[in-house]
Simulated scan of single mutants.
Amino acid sequence: MTTTFSSLPVVDVGALGLPTGASPAERAALSKRLYEVFATTGFAYLTNVPLSFKHEDVFDLSLQFFALPESEKMKLAKRSFRRTNTNTYRGYFPTQPELASDNLKEGFEMGPAKSIRTKSSVTSGSKFNLAEPNVWPDQNNFAARPSLERLYSELQSLSSELLSLLAVSLGKPADFFASYLDDSLSTLRLLHYPPVASSASGSRSAGSDVKLSCTPHTDSGILTLLHQDSTGGLEVQNSSGEWVAAPYVPESLVVNIGDLMARVSGGRFVATMHRVRAPAVGASAAAVSGQHRSPQTGRISVPFFFEPGENCLVRSVDGDEGFVVYGEHVRMKMKTWVEFQDDGDSN
């Protein structure tokens, strides 16, 4: 269970990027450290991460997308937002303050570059095709696609490494989670939180004047890796109910697990509540400023959600008889996610 932490722990994963790979002793130490983190805080900063992208690279890729005209972004909107579009799971979603005061963000979601071999088992009660291909802006207006596809691939590989370490930490073979990688539905999400004027309406946390862009929640899946800029706003709740700031740490990733991984761990790991404060007008991330950033940019974050394949059977490491079919799990969760709700646009 969570502890009364006052800051997030830091885990140096530089050994994973060594040319010769991490030694058995280094892997054992990392495995033990990750167990400690997920059994207590549920969140951590990963430093010396083996990625070829610097933070400024990642944020500039995001801003290249959000700088597109609204008309171009809406061409990629999920069918919930534009009836004439065929994509249902991947693509763009606009802010929806009319549906939820806390949904003060726009986003773009992509999956693997290669087609998923197993066709989506779309049920009669679902309109979402989890295995659908990505949608992209016109390449003449958006040159970032190859880099985003490479970033996705590198984050998927890092997730695989972390899952292997977590398997060992739970007393299982290093390849225990290998089946999760088959036809994985992992999602790379680009998020833009526009700045909010202090007088603007918006969701506020209970019993306070804190204005939120994202209300308190736990992630629903397996593993989240987050690039966040220096605007700030992410907060994590400790066991005393206090909200602990998770400020920007240069070139780090924030890592946390979701409800499903907590279940897989047999309750040894904890999925921790977190929220995002709304960026104020004038907020900018000067420490990682790029060519597309302006003083009115607001907050940029790029979470990567590791997800198993749609037909993957997810069960506890303790060997309990119960299991979850991942596709059924995520479809149920999607019913509560604002970005998958219908906004009534018939254009």
Score class of each variant (00 low, 15 high):
G207Y: 07
D182T: 09
A167M: 07
Y35R: 11
R150T: 14
P24Q: 09
L130P: 05
G125F: 08
G267I: 14
F43C: 02
M261K: 00
A167E: 10
G282K: 02
T297R: 05
D12R: 03
E235H: 00
P308S: 04
S203R: 13
L155N: 00
A174N: 14
A197Q: 07
Q64K: 09
F66W: 14
L260P: 04
F5Q: 01
F66Y: 06
K75G: 07
V338Q: 14
E70T: 14
L99D: 12
P250E: 09
S252A: 13
T118H: 11
C312E: 13
L185K: 03
R315Y: 05
V276H: 05
L181T: 06
L253E: 00
S6W: 07
E149I: 02
P308K: 07
V255K: 06
N134W: 10
D60P: 06
P97M: 00
E154N: 04
S179F: 06
G42W: 01
G282F: 03
S201W: 10
L253G: 03
A197N: 01
T88W: 00
D320Q: 13
H55P: 00
Y92C: 15
E132H: 07
S184Q: 08
G21K: 07
T95G: 11
Y35F: 13
K32E: 15
G309K: 11
T2D: 13
H329C: 13
G266H: 03
P97V: 04
L226Q: 07
N85W: 13
K73S: 06
V281Q: 03
S23W: 02
Y152H: 15
H227T: 01
N311Q: 12
S284Y: 07
V314T: 11
A285L: 05
S52T: 15
Q228V: 05
V122Q: 15
P279Q: 01
L63Y: 14
G319L: 08
A206Y: 14
L18Q: 11
S199E: 15
H329F: 10
S62P: 09
A285S: 11
V244T: 09
Y152N: 03
L51D: 07
V317R: 10
S169L: 03
L68Y: 03
L34S: 02
I222D: 05
G258Y: 08
P216M: 02
A174E: 15
P303D: 01
I222N: 11
H217L: 05
S120I: 08
A113W: 03
E242L: 14
L190C: 03
R145G: 11
E132Y: 08
A100G: 13
H55S: 04
A283V: 15
V249D: 04
F142T: 10
G17H: 02
P19W: 02
L46K: 01
A287L: 13
T297P: 03
S160F: 01
A262S: 08
Q296G: 10
G241L: 09
V276D: 08
S164Q: 01
Y152W: 15
S301D: 08
A280K: 14
G202N: 15
L68R: 04
G290P: 00
T20E: 14
L313H: 13
G14A: 02
V276M: 09
T40Q: 00
D12H: 07
Q96L: 15
Y92T: 10
V254D: 09
M261Q: 05
V168I: 12
N311G: 07
L61D: 12
D102H: 14
G344Q: 07
R263A: 11
D182A: 08
G202F: 12
E307P: 10
